[in-house]
């Protein structure tokens, strides 16, 4: 469906544009390459997760466990790399092993969520509320209440995954962009995306139209798990550590970004590029508050909250206009 230029489509874009103007007006370093890189790179983790979340929400699901899952995946990745270091040594094989572990653990975690939801038929909210607690406790337990840290020499070696890049564009930004482009194409132009929208708008109709509803739903959770794995691969090199507080509230930020971007929370309509706008809006609010001392940083949450509610108000307007 081609988006018509309605208020609800333009709203998030206009908000993003307004924030950029505001930031540029308040601090001349705002548009500097370094700051733009910082903001985009730090949006990449939540951004990749939010792209996966867009598919889950579009197909009528929800995943509250992604923040905890990220912490758990990071923990397992560090643990595996520290354990393998004596045999593999510091180098590319160890880095690849770590990446492999992160992606595999993410995939399995997503599969666990998906199977519980589709096979056992438990509400997504309940399942992922449960696994949210489980993943977070597991990482705290593995870390013995403290912080799991990657061996320093290995940290130096894989640091470039976060800090490096090509042609001045850092890897997290490149990876994020690739995920977004693929996500947008999948949502708009493939069967999988179409089926997600169909299931989200009415799963009975989808079932009667020969759509394998459970399989598609399962795939959305697996894809989200996989993206959490990818995001973690970028996250771990940044600080080389994971603890019980890693990824705290990421799930809510990802969900908020999806909703701000115009995806319907009850499912049936998804907009991947909107999610990207949502993620950028949320990061920019924090960035501008840090750069400008405009209002107390205590109010960061309040400003994000206002934007989320406004986004939904705009969606309401749109749907009531369609109602007639």
């Amino acid at each position: 469906m081609r988006d018509r230029l309605t208020l609800s489509t333009l709203g998030p874009l206009a908000a993003l544009f307004a924030l950029i103007l505001l930031g540029a007006g308040l601090n001349e370093n705002f548009l500097s390459a370094a700051n733009v890189t910082n903001v985009l790179a730090r949006s990449a983790f939540i951004g990749m997760i939010a792209v996966g979340m867009t598919f889950v929400i579009t197909s009528g699901g929800l995943d509250l466990s992604v923040g905890s899952m990220a912490a758990f995946v990071a923990g397992m990745m560090i643990l595996a790399m520290n354990a393998l270091q004596p045999s593999l040594g510091v180098g590319l094989p160890l880095a690849l092993a770590g990446i492999g572990v992160a992606i595999l653990v993410g995939l399995l975690a997503g599969l666990a969520n998906g199977l519980l939801i589709t096979r056992a038929g438990i509400e997504p909210f309940i399942v992922t509320l449960g696994t949210m607690g489980i993943f977070r406790s597991l990482v705290t337990w593995i870390a013995d209440g403290g912080t799991l840290s990657l061996d320093f020499s290995m940290r130096e070696f894989i640091g470039p995954i976060y800090y490096g890049g090509i042609l001045g564009v850092s890897w997290p930004i490149i990876a994020f962009a690739v995920v977004v482009v693929i996500g947008e194409v999948v949502m708009r132009h493939t069967r999988f995306g179409r089926y997600c929208e169909a299931i989200g708008s009415n799963d009975k109709v989808a079932r009667y139209s020969a759509v394998k509803v459970e399989r598609i739903q399962l795939l959305t959770y697996v894809a989200l798990g996989l993206l959490v794995g990818f995001a973690t691969v970028l996250y771990v090199p940044r600080l080389g550590s994971a603890s019980g507080s890693t990824g705290l509230l990421w799930e809510l930020e990802a969900i908020a970004a999806v909703i701000i971007g115009g995806t319907a929370l009850k499912g049936g309509f998804g907009r991947v590029w909107g999610t990207v706008v949502g993620v950028l809006i949320l990061s920019l609010i924090g960035n501008i508050l840090n750069l400008a001392n405009l209002v107390s940083p205590y109010l960061n949450g309040a400003i994000q909250g206002v934007i989320i509610v406004l986004a939904v108000v705009l969606q309401r307007r749109k749907s009531s206009a369609e109602g007639r």
């Binding site: 929208e197 169909a198 708008s201 009975k204 109709v205 989808a206 759509v211």
Partner: peptide, 17 residues
Amino acid sequence: ERGLLLTKTLRENLTLS
């Protein structure tokens, strides 16, 4: 409730199955 996605366009409904 089972035949058509009421919020989707004609095209999306026609080709769904």
